[in-house]
Design a protein around this nucleic acid. Structure first.
Lengths: 255, 255
DNA sequence: ACAATGAACTTCACTAGATGAAATGTTGGT
DNA sequence: ACCAACATTTCATCTAGTGAAGTTCATTGT
């Protein structure tokens, strides 16, 4: 038996091994076997066998009875970047964007209702925390909004609805209705300007990178420390940012 | 049946799925199904089932009958960085290292007989190609040599032997015997200084980061464009580099 | 010190489910 | 229009993944 009742073919043991991998990915601390078993709801022997395979590949490492991801996942990340046309072409564009504006440029790729940092080119002095490659954020805060704003109306509203019960970096609760209106404004302006929203210490301007049929693929942003980066400074960078984004738009299809 | 004839337990279908993933990782171009089948030596139906699972997780994406890695691998990379004490602690240390020296700092983690770039903090102007996170290199060129130099004698010689038949960035063939002698020098000096070796445009100084029992875990380097980065400038940075590396040494065990 | 708990890891008989041959659908070349 | 090459689906077979039970090891309480 291979084809599932629900169309998609699958391989149970692979699904299970990936559940284990994802559990480790989501955890911000190494996990013991029992913890993993509880998280993925599997028999210890099954989890242990999966871990043994993953370990031999370097995807998982173990240290006195706790498990976490291994360096091999970094090599995989590189394997992605090498084949991804968008990030590949973005790198030089972003380097000149940063050298012209003096701000940090970031490319957040859309992945479902999330955005994932794929490329970052740092602006001059690194005085603050830097978002590491692979970090993901929702679409309803900060530069993510420029992605949400370009989604079809129903999905856009869905994103706004997700903000229900969430708080921004300053701890203020988000209002879905207000988010929805902001997204409309951003859609009209073609760019977002957010100050201290996702991170109180960061101010950013962002525009969308789109595919051949106009669908959003990513958000390209420039950002700086909020004390030294005024709204005006960001606004000045918008034309350059827009130019960079349009150089990347229209060439890449959604997966 | 679960335990293999060779001690280690395994799960065949998981092994196979990971073979597929690794084939995609190693390829510098998207692959068709037949190509994958040839590479991993499996029946098309088997490969297709594995791909379906990987696709649903975002680890693989397909575009008109070709397959490549998906953004989910970037999220995994982040999952690794979050739990890895060494890279976590290295980030701030490297930021100050870069702000003091003005050079780019890189942390290459040892993984078998390779090194993988885990953290990079860019020095002032980005005028040249930047090594992306996850890129791996051998231990016998450039900053890798500082890792090789601290290995037990037999492994060190093994690395030197691997350089047989390889060329450096300038296209000159490497001589294992000469590499072996260089490693001895580096072991004595406690640092490496390489100019245009791994990349003709880059000059770098590197020192080793070690674990509690003195085993090498990583190479910490400072680098700059070879035209504007003299041997003297690098030498001046060595004490600071050494300080940074010793702040990271002795705390982390090998996996 | 010694039992008792709890967790990591191993073994093995059973049968769920992964497998691959073959059939079907699709695309591109001449 | 035909053929060739590849992608994808189906299904009967029997491999190999599973989990209950057992073993070992470490830690905690009395």
């Amino acid at each position: 038996m291979a084809a599932e009742s629900s169309g998609q073919p699958t391989v149970r043991s692979v699904e299970r091994a990936l559940d284990v991998l994802e559990a480790l990915e989501r955890s911000d601390t190494p996990l013991r076997l029992v913890d993993l078993c509880r998280l993925v709801d599997l028999h210890p022997a099954t989890v242990l066998r999966s871990l043994a395979v993953l370990q031999r590949r370097g995807l998982v490492v173990t240290e006195n009875q706790t498990y976490r991801l291994g360096v091999a996942v970094l090599r995989m990340a590189h394997g992605f970047l090498v084949n991804d046309q968008l990030t590949q072409q973005a790198r030089p564009v972003m380097q000149s964007l940063t050298s012209v504006t003096g701000l940090t440029s970031s490319l957040y790729v859309r992945s479902g209702f999330e955005r994932v940092l794929a490329v970052r080119v740092d602006g001059s002095p690194q005085l603050h925390y830097q978002v590491p490659i692979g970090r993901w954020f929702p679409l309803y805060v900060g530069s993510g909004k420029v992605i949400a704003a370009h989604l079809p109306k129903d999905e856009r509203d869905a994103v706004a609805a997700m903000s229900e019960g969430c708080v921004n970096a300053a701890g203020e609760p988000l209002d879905p209705e207000r988010v929805r209106r902001e997204l409309e404004d951003i859609d009209r302006d073609g760019h977002s300007l957010t100050i201290g929203e996702r991170d109180v210490a960061v101010a950013a301007a962002a525009v969308a990178v789109t595919g051949p049929t106009g669908e959003v693929l990513a958000a390209l942003s420039v950002s700086g420390p909020s004390e030294h980066t005024s709204k005006d400074r960001l606004r000045q960078a918008v034309p350059e940012l827009r130019r960079a984004a349009s150089a990347l738009s229209g060439r890449h299809a959604r997966p």
